[in-house]
Amino acid sequence: MVVKRKRETTVVSKPQAKEDSPPPVDNAQDVFRRLFEAQFEPLDLPGPTAKSTNSDEEENEDDDDSDLSGSEGDWDGMSDISDESNQVEVVEHTGTYAAPTDRMDKKTWKAFMSGKLLSDLDKPSTEPEPTSKKEEEEDAHESANLKHDLALQRLLKESHLLDSADDLAPTGKNRLKALDLRMQSLGAKTSLYAQTKMPTAHRRGIKAKAESKEDRRRQEAKENGIILEKPSKVQKSSNNGRRDRGLVGSSVGKFSGGTLNLNKDDIARVQASGRRMGGRGKGKTRGGRGGRGGSKR
């Protein structure tokens, strides 16, 4: 046993030493050998420098074996087996498992660690690329469709302008009219070409004509038993009746040069009306007197 242990130690330690620092050892040995050879005859030892480490090991083992074979023959087989098993173990150990090279990317991590269920995650992980391609195509398709839609809508809206024209893209007068329509559809309050100023008689005529048209339409509908929408309330302008003239329009006195001038008559009238008012107020409580006051005046 003692012998075996010794062998093992030699076997293990040798390659280590070689692996750790082979060149200096070899150099030193070479130097010594050259010195030796210079003094004596050349050596025919196998040069360790020329050979690979593996063959070297084997040779060493062989050497050891031959040494041992002199003392005990039985140990050879055993030790051979043990050597082999040792070697195999070493090989297995060095074949390390290199795992952490393939870490998941952050996106997958987030997808997995979110609250969603595992089954939900499978679908998006396989789909996204094809969908993105599809989406791009669809987007292009969609925009083309939208363009066509717009053209169609315009055509429908402005078709009445094109009755005479045979061209889809209107020109001249029609173009201006179409532009105007588009402006209105975009929110313009009145047509660009609505006339703002015209003689009153002219405007009245237009108004009257429109009214008569509407009346006729309603009349016809009534005769034919068609129910129409209720007539929109005619919006009366606020300044239709009396105009507010401010101080200038005061009913008493005369306004001139920024002052209201009252003559005696005016003052008397105002005072009288005030008394009358007061009388009326009292009249409600007392009765009859206000009327008398009024008659007095």
């Binding site: 979110s114 609250g115 969603k116 269920l117 089954s119 939900d120």
Partner: peptide
């Protein structure tokens, strides 16, 4: 999911 219950289930 195998019982037809799969929508809007989350565990955060």
């Amino acid at each position: 999911k195998q019982f037809g219950i799969f929508n809007n289930i989350e565990l955060r």
